[in-house]
């Protein structure tokens, strides 16, 4: 299991990286953390002619906190989120999520933007980006454009990235104070890709749901933001009955594909059950976090 031969380029800066990407648009591939790409190369399922190693680009590292959003450099390692990168609900949610991404050594090397660009339908960060309406900054030698998550993910392992573009930053709007979040996934083993996962954010007012974010992962060709469930939740009491209804809505609205780890019917039902839990988790946190 050795990869096919490739040419290796290591740009000094973003401008050079963009040039390399443009020059190798047909058969080049960006190497960020490499934790998904390199296994695929070792199996010779991916065989780029040219590998453009951007791991050293300083400009793409690190998280910036703004008043209303977090701006995450695409090359920020997963492990950065082991501790809260900001106060408030979003920072806490990212901590909650990151522990489910593969294993510790993978998180030391894999990157936030690499995961989004890879666009595995069962990737945790893709679910976060979709559910929280992140914006991706895509740069090329010709300029930059901002693409919302809803346009960025186009299908299984498919994104809006053009061959001459690099995802450089991801902006995630912060969640309002008092928001509770929930993240639940079910995998066969610790660290495996989830059979299904649910991400929720609830803002409560007097025991009722004032606003809701609901996303499901691993049950379609991309992460799903469940707008209809969000709308249905608003105004409802934050009770197990409400969450059960939401879970049933989820079952009715998705049609996952089966594979060797779980049949389609199983995943559909599982996603509903996980959503119920994630909503309950978010409600509990929201009650605890409610401003006094």
């Amino acid at each position: 299991m050795k990869p096919a031969a490739f040419a290796y380029l290591k740009p000094e800066n973003l401008a050079e990286a963009l040039r390399f990407v443009a020059d190798n648009a047909d058969d080049g591939k960006l190497l960020a953390g490499g934790q998904s790409l390199v296994p695929a190369m070792n199996f010779r399922l991916a065989r780029p002619e040219t590998l453009i190693d951007i791991t050293g680009l300083e400009a793409l590292q690190g998280v910036e906190e703004h008043a209303d959003a977090l701006s995450i450099g695409a090359l920020t390692r997963h492990a950065t989120f082991h501790k809260p990168v900001s106060d408030g609900a979003l920072g806490r949610l990212l901590v909650k999520v990151v522990g489910h991404i593969a294993h510790y050594p993978i998180r030391q090397r894999g990157t936030f933007g690499g995961s989004l660009s890879h666009a595995d339908p069962a990737a945790e960060w893709c679910l976060v980006a979709t559910t929280l309406n992140a914006t991706m900054r895509l740069e090329s030698s010709g300029g930059a454009r901002d693409v919302p998550a809803s346009d960025f993910f186009r299908g299984s392992f498919t994104t809006a990235l053009e061959p001459n573009e690099i995802l450089t930053r991801i902006t995630i709007p912060k969640l309002p104070d008092g928001t509770g979040t929930g993240f639940v996934e079910f995998a066969r083993r610790k660290g495996d890709f989830a059979l299904a996962m649910a991400l929720t954010a609830l803002h409560l007012e007097g025991g009722a749901i004032r606003s809701a974010r609901v996303g499901l992962g691993g049950v379609a060709d991309r992460a799903l933001r469940m707008d209809a469930i969000e709308a249905a939740l608003v105004g409802q009491p934050a009770t197990p009955e409400t969450f059960a209804t939401a879970g049933q809505m989820a079952r009715d609205q998705i049609s996952p594909r089966g594979d060797i780890h779980g049949s389609a019917e199983y995943r559909r039902d599982l996603a509903g059950a996980l959503l119920e839990r994630a909503l309950a988790q978010a409600a509990e946190e929201a009650r605890g976090a409610a401003p006094t």
Binding site: H261, G262, S263
Partner: peptide, 10 residues
């Protein structure tokens, strides 16, 4: 597996 147990229950 979880799927088999779920199927059996169903």
């Amino acid at each position: 597996t979880p799927d088999r147990i779920w199927q059996a229950l169903r």
